[in-house]
C-alpha cells in the first residue's frame, strides 16, 4: 500500500519535472511561441477550445468514427475468424487474400477510400475498419486453432450440434484471447483515425490538428495531441476492464490453479 503511494508521488514528480523542462525549453528555444508553445500557453489554448465546445465536438466526431469502424470490424472479423479457425476449406479460400491485404497500411487505401466513399465520415470509417479487421480476423483464427482438442471431444461426446459447438465451446474458449486482441486493435484504430481525419473531413481531432497547423496555432496542435493521448488511455483502460469480466476469468485464474 505504502509503496504504491510512493510510486504515485514519484510518477507525479517526474511528470511535473517534464512540464518544467518543457516550459523552460519553450522559453529559451528562441522560437516564436506560435511555433513552440510552453505548457501554460497550451493550457490556455485548451481552455479556449473547450469553452466554445470545439474540443468536445471534434472528440465526439473522432470517437464516432472509431466506434463505427471498429464495431464493423468486430462484427465481420470475429465471425470470419471463427469460420476460418473451424473449417480448413474456409481458411484455404480466404486466408491468402487476408494475408496479402494485411500488410498494406490502411493509409495506402486513402486515395481509393476517397474515390469510393467521397467526402465525410465514410472514408474515415472505412480506413478504421481496415485497420481493425485484419488483426481481428487473424487473432480469432489463431485463438480458435489453439483451443484444447479435449473440449471438442467433450462436445462430440455430449452430442453437441454444430451451433452448440460454436456457441458453447468455441466462443467462450476464445473470449480471453479475443479480448486481448480487441485491446490491441482499438489502439491501432485510434492511431489510424487521426491520420484518416487529415483527409476528406472537416471535423475530428485529426482535422483539428491539421486545421490548427494551417493557422499556425501550435498550442492547439498540442491540445489535439494531448486529448488524443488521453482518450487513447481511456479506451485502453476500458478494454482492460473487459478482460476482467467473468467470461474471461477462467483462463487468467485457471493458470494459477492448474
Amino acid at each position: 500500500m505504502r509503496s504504491s503511494k510512493n510510486n504515485w508521488i514519484l510518477s507525479s514528480l517526474s511528470f511535473l519535472l517534464l512540464l518544467i523542462l518543457w516550459e523552460l525549453s519553450a522559453k529559451f528555444s528562441g522560437w516564436n511561441e506560435h511555433v513552440f508553445p510552453g505548457p501554460l500557453q497550451v493550457l490556455k489554448g485548451m481552455m479556449e477550445l473547450s469553452s466554445d465546445g470545439t474540443l468536445f465536438r471534434h472528440s465526439v466526431a473522432s470517437l464516432y468514427r472509431v466506434t463505427a469502424g471498429f464495431y464493423l470490424a468486430v462484427v465481420l472479423g470475429i465471425p470470419l475468424g471463427i469460420l476460418m479457425g473451424r473449417w480448413s476449406w474456409m481458411r484455404m479460400i480466404v486466408n491468402p487474400m487476408i494475408q496479402f491485404l494485411r500488410p498494406i497500411s490502411p493509409l495506402a487505401w486513402i486515395p481509393l477510400a476517397m474515390l469510393w466513399f467521397g467526402i465525410g465520415d465514410k472514408p474515415a470509417i472505412f480506413l478504421i475498419f481496415l485497420s481493425s479487421f485484419f488483426p481481428l480476423v487473424v487473432s480469432t483464427t489463431v485463438a480458435v486453432g489453439s483451443i484444447n482438442p479435449v473440449f471438442f471431444q467433450v462436445a462430440r461426446n455430449f452430442n453437441f450440434s454444430r451451433w452448440e459447438t460454436i456457441s458453447r465451446i468455441v466462443v467462450p474458449a476464445i473470449t480471453p484471447s479475443v479480448i486481448t486482441a480487441l485491446r490491441i486493435t482499438i489502439t491501432i484504430a485510434w492511431l489510424v483515425v487521426v491520420a484518416a481525419e487529415m483527409i476528406a473531413v472537416q471535423s475530428g481531432l485529426g482535422y483539428l490538428i491539421l486545421d490548427s497547423r494551417n493557422a499556425l496555432r501550435m498550442d492547439y496542435v498540442m491540445d489535439g495531441m494531448i486529448i488524443i493521448g488521453f482518450i487513447g488511455l481511456l479506451l485502453d483502460g476500458f478494454m482492460r476492464k473487459l478482460g476482467h469480466i467473468e467470461a474471461a476469468l477462467w483462463r487468467t485464474m485457471g493458470r494459477r490453479v492448474g
Partner: peptide, 9 residues
C-alpha cells in the same frame, strides 16, 4: 478424460 474434461468457462 485423463486431465480434466470439464469446460472451464
Amino acid at each position: 478424460f485423463q486431465h480434466s474434461g470439464l469446460l472451464p468457462w
